[in-house]
Structures are given as C-alpha cells and as structure tokens.
Nucleic acid binder design. Structure first.
Lengths: 224, 224
DNA sequence: GATGATTTGTGCGTATGTATG
DNA sequence: GCATACATACGCACAAATCAT
C-alpha cells in the first residue's frame, strides 16, 4: 500500500483551458466579451505560451472566436445559430434517448428517476428565484440519458454543443409555468425509456427540445 | 481597378494546421503514426510555437491524440468508435437529407444530378483500380447535401466526423459490385430530394449509411 | 540502470500590427 | 499624420521528461 504519492504537475495548458472554459460556462465571461492572452497570462502569473494553446483549443471548440485581426471574443450565437444547434440536438439527443431506452440497466433507470424526484422537490419547495438547483437537475437528466446511451462520440459532440448555449439556459424559465411543463416532458420521456419504447422515447425527446427552442425564440425576439 | 495588391502573410499556425491535416487525410500519415512537434518545426523551418498551436487544434478536432506522456499519434479508431461515429452520422446526415429536400433550389438539385451523372461515368469507363475519382465524386454527393441543408452547425459537425474516418473510405470498395450499390442508393436518395419527400429522403440516407457500416464491419472483422 | 540524444513544457524577447488620442 | 500604448506572431533558450543505447 502506498503511504503517499507524488503528484504529477498538471500542465498549465490544461489548467488554463479549464479555467477559461469555466469562466464562460459560469457566466463570468459573457458572450461577446473580449479576452487578451497577455492579460490572462499576467493574471495567472504564467507565460503566454500555454495560454495561446488553450485559446486555440477553445476556438476549435467554438467557445472563442478569433477574428482576422486576432481579436479574441467569447462566442455569441445568433438566433439562427441557436436554431441550427437545436436542430442538431434534436437529431442527436433523440438518438440518445432511443439508445438509452434500449440499453439502460435497472440501476440506471433508477438514477434517472431519482433525478426527476429531485426536480419535483425543487419545484415544490425551492424559493431561489434563479432556480439554480432546478436548472442543474434538469440539465443532469439530459446528461444522464446521453451517458447511458453507450455512444462516446455522441457524448462528445453533445457536450461541445451544450457548452455553446449554456449561457442561455437560465432564460428558459422567464416564463411562468415553463418549469412544470419541462418537468412533465421529462417525466414522459422517462416513462418511455422505462418501458423500453425506443421510438416513443426518441420522439418525445425531439418534441421536448422543440418546445424548448420555441421558448428561446420568443425570449430572443422580445429583446433578450 | 487595382493594378496590384498586397498579400497579407498567412499565419504559420494556419498553414501548419492545414499541412498536417492534409497529410492525414491523404493517408501520408496513417492511423497510429507518431508525430513530433520539434521535428515538424525543423522540417518546416519554423519555430515550435505555431506547430504546438496547430497540434492542439488537431487534438481538439480528434485527429491527433496526445497521451499522458505527451506522445502525439494519429487517431486510430476502434471498430466501436466507427460504429459510434456512423450512428451519429445516420442521425445527422438524414437530418441533412431532410433539410435539403425541403430547401434545395432547382439549381442545387441540378448540381446533385450532375454529380450522380459523373459517378455513373466513372463507374462505366474509369479503369483506375483505386477508383479515386469515383470515391471523390461519391464523397461530393454527401458534401453537397450537407451544404444545401442551410445548417452551418450540422456542416461543421459532419466535416469533423468525416475527417475521422476518411482513411477508411477506400476500404468500402474492396467488395465487387459495392460501387454500383452505392450509386443506386445515392440515386434513390436524390429522387426523393427532387420530389421533396423529406421523410423518405431522410430514411433512405439512414439506410444507405447503415449498409455502408455493415460493409466496414465485414472488412474490419476479416482482418482489415 | 547510467548516459547522451531527443522531445516537450514553459518563459521571454523582438518584430509587427492595431487602436487611440 | 504621428506617437504612444498595448496586442499578437513567432523565434529562441533552458529545464525537465523521455527514449535509446
């Protein structure tokens, strides 16, 4: 048995990559904000080399955009972008629901159910106006379905897609009752997964995302 | 009228990125091959900085893999990887076929038809045993459908997916008659796009990729 | 294993480009 | 238009990790 262990130094490149990514996902950096590689290096007290590499990776991932004059900004999707992304999500997440209906073990189905129960609890008792816990739990429902689909490529693509629109996730609940609709839609998807009806699970997932998109559209058109 | 123009210098990072990418897609670098950033920099007579950034981007794209000891290798998909990728392609390219059936202009439909005609010509008269021209034309058929779908996100995802398995595209024709089957399948998809039957176009695209995958499976199991 | 060659990780300097007063 | 401030693109140096002998 090891009594102690030596930690490998984590590469700066990785740390910077995750640090910037987190700042975007958490909303500290907002769509359209500018970034400066030199300033980030200064703030983190490291040289610019690892920062440059992290920025390239994030650009490739789509979270950062670098224009022809090398100015770096956080990706700010247009409404058309969001529609395109949702169209892809519908195709891919309904595939995910189908595969999970096919493959999920009883333990995994339990896990999905637990998530739904927690969501319901937050709906009934949580007083946080920002609904952070609820939003996280709803997000988790989608993540679990992808996880249980046993398709790693699907998972990778959807993870990337998700991060591109994560900033807009809180907008979804500006509308009254929307939270409850989401809950019932999730419940319906879950029921079909549990019954192992692949086609219905896929269909309901697609519909669910469609209403989600309708919602985002409305919010966008009323001036964000 | 300008009598001359000044060229902006193309960034080394971009050139290196495309250069390595091309070497992989063209098969000069094969799955599993090792790469060394220092050597590439020496060969191209530039410093390692732009090479490093290009490598990070290609890793993010999935074409290169960097292990825990920083060794760089060309991505070598397992059979499961290929199956996962095809499952995603089925979902996404059938979406592409559906959208193209919906949106394609008569000019775009003509363009698709031209590609099919060329394919048929190559099938009948081309004597190249590697069928390079035919393979390119078939690939172009898929690319055009994605192009005409008017969904840029779909295009981006599929471009990346495609490059991950492009090395295996030539394997598809080891079987006799496979080329003709592909041609007829493409023709059937085209017919439905022209008739604007979105669902049938999507369905046939999915089936087409399914038989494609069956083929790759067979080739893989018989020892590559 | 010990040694030397090679490679990667990081810091930093210089040239060049861009915004702004 | 010019000067200043500050950004990025690239090259290079050196230490640490890794590989071959």
């Amino acid at each position: 048995m090891k009594s102690f262990s030596i930690e490998k130094p984590v590469r700066y490149y990785d740390q910077v990559y995750h640090s910037i990514r987190k700042r975007i996902v958490d909303g500290e950096l907002q769509p359209g904000d500018s970034l400066y590689e030199a300033r980030i290096a200064r703030e983190l007290n490291i040289s610019r080399s690892p920062v440059r590499e992290a920025i390239r990776a994030l650009e490739k991932e789509g979270l950062l955009e670098i224009d022809e004059k090398s100015r770096i900004t956080v990706y700010k999707p247009t409404l058309k972008d969001i529609e395109d992304i949702y169209e892809c999500r519908m195709a891919l997440e309904s595939l995910g629901a189908k595969l999970t209906a096919r493959f999920a073990t009883s333990k995994e189905i339990e896990e999905l159910e637990t998530t739904l129960l927690k969501s319901k609890e937050f709906l009934e008792v949580d007083t946080d106006p920002n609904k952070v816990a609820l939003i996280e739990e709803n997000s988790r429902f989608h993540d679990l379905i992808i996880e249980f689909s046993q398709n790693n490529r699907l998972k990778k693509i959807l993870t990337d897609l998700h991060s591109l629109i994560i900033f807009y996730r809180t907008l979804n609940f500006h509308d009254e009752n929307r939270e409850w609709v989401v809950y019932y839609e999730h419940q319906a998807i879950f029921d079909q997964i549990k019954r192992k009806d692949e086609e219905k699970a896929a269909f309901l997932m697609k519909k669910h995302l469609e209403t989600d998109l309708q919602h985002l559209r409305k919010i966008f058109s009323t001036g964000l």
